[in-house]
Simulated scan of single mutants.
Amino acid sequence: MLIQLGIMGLLAAILPLTMVWVSSDANKYRKLAAVTLFLTFDLIIFGGFTRLTDSGLGCPDWPGCYGHANPFQAHEHISAAQSAMPTGPVTVFKAWIEMIHRYLAMGVGVLIVSLMVIAWLRWIKSARRHARFAPAMPTLLFLFVCLQGAFGAFTVTMKLQPIIVTCHLLLGLGLLAMLTWLHVRQREHPALSPTAVSLRGPALLGALLLFVQLALGGWVSTNYAALACTDFPTCHGVWLPQMDFENGFTLWRKLGMTADGEYLPFPALTAIHYVHRSFAFVVAAVLGWLALRAMKISGMQVVGRCLLAALAVQLCTGLATVYFNWPLAIAVLHNAGAALLVLILTMLNYKTRLAPHGAPASIARPPTAY
């Protein structure tokens, strides 16, 4: 089974690797970093789709499905589970969603291993070692994706325990941020005005606030609290609804249960939803101000406009999720918007910290081959 799963991971990576190899881009390492970033972004969106369709236990074991490498081979077991519980966590549809998510994750893992190996080869063979090819970041990415894979296994074996699933989500977004940093590092950057440096602190603050909001959003999603408040701007018709913060924010507990093993009371779900909703206004205010500041700085206008647009879309999809009773498509878009904010804010932080003087002339034309 493990060999078959390994083959599936290689197959998932063959197409993007082939695209990079036949690409006309002179810097194929940069192209590989871009493709890996793109597929990781897609993987996060598909992971949100997996979670939102309740397919996380579509195959209740790991890494295979009932001990097999694909749902075809496990069809008998899946059909039996579906017959016993037609609306349960195991169905043919959910099993395929879960396994496709795993195949894509293995493919991304292969691409990250490729980035690490190529970086080390370049670093060892190159007489003039350039910072953009330093292997530290690709190696850290490899270790990070191994940790992410472990939490993917824990997600299944610990039956969707909220803190585990939330950490799995945050690690995925962290992986996206690191790949964004690696990709942006490969590109040439024009010199920025000295005022760009003044955004270093605000950009870092925005990233920290966004991380907190992502953790709160993940906690809402993994506790299925998205519809704990179905009206806006009030909640249950009042500005301050009844809330149970103690049970709502007890981290180590089973899904839908309190730490004492009782069913999670509805006021706990309300507290989870309300805190995420309220903190969103703080994050929106800071990121909106940051975007407007960036738009006034030469060389940062594009990233500032992108940040402002992504923030507006994210607020709209969040409100639409409540108003339209949590439609799947909008909920997936809300997850995608969170990933997009991470990507853009990482680029903004890079520009304020590592690119104020532009790309050194000695590496303006990187090697053309792997």
Rank of each mutant, 00 (worst) to 15 (best):
T234M: 11
E98D: 13
M19Y: 15
V165G: 03
L208I: 14
A285Y: 01
M137W: 14
A369M: 11
V20G: 08
G237T: 07
F245A: 02
R129D: 07
A69L: 00
T157L: 10
V342L: 08
A81L: 07
A150F: 15
V184Y: 15
N27D: 15
T139S: 12
F324D: 15
K351A: 13
S193C: 02
R122G: 12
G58E: 06
K159N: 12
R253I: 01
T195K: 11
A203S: 15
F93P: 08
A81Y: 03
L287K: 08
R305L: 14
L328I: 09
W181T: 14
V90H: 05
L121D: 01
L121H: 08
L5E: 02
H75E: 13
P233H: 00
V165W: 03
I272V: 01
N349T: 09
H236Q: 12
T250N: 02
Y29T: 04
L216V: 00
D244R: 00
A134T: 09
Q242A: 15
F142Q: 01
N223L: 06
G109L: 04
S198G: 10
A336C: 01
M85F: 11
P60S: 03
G206C: 05
A369G: 11
G206S: 04
L43Y: 05
T40W: 09
P202G: 03
L115M: 09
A196W: 03
H334Q: 03
V90S: 04
M85Q: 13
A191L: 09
R187D: 12
Q186P: 13
T53A: 08
A131N: 12
Y370E: 13
T53R: 08
G248W: 03
V35N: 08
P356T: 01
M243G: 00
H75F: 15
L269E: 07
A280R: 10
V145G: 09
K94V: 01
A309M: 14
P366Q: 00
F324K: 12
V20S: 06
L214I: 12
R365I: 13
L354A: 13
R51Q: 07
I344K: 10
S79C: 04
A177R: 12
V342R: 10
A33S: 14
K94R: 00
A207L: 15
P367D: 04
A74M: 03
K28V: 10
I363M: 15
L328M: 05
V275Q: 01
C59N: 03
H276Y: 01
T317W: 02
A127R: 11
L5S: 03
W181S: 14
R187C: 06
P71T: 02
Q73M: 15
R277H: 07
G358R: 03
A339P: 10
L170A: 05
P241L: 02
C306P: 02
S55K: 05
L269P: 06
P267N: 02
V90W: 13
F151K: 04
W62A: 07
T368D: 09
G107C: 02
P327Y: 07
L340N: 02
V165A: 10
W96L: 07
A312Q: 06
L208V: 11
F144C: 10
A228Q: 06
I7R: 07
L227C: 07
A291Y: 02
T222D: 09
G299M: 02
S24E: 15
T50C: 11
N223G: 01
A26C: 05
G172I: 05
F245L: 05
G9C: 07
Q82H: 05
A153F: 08
A131R: 11
P138D: 08
V197I: 13
K125T: 11
I97H: 06
A26D: 14
T250R: 04
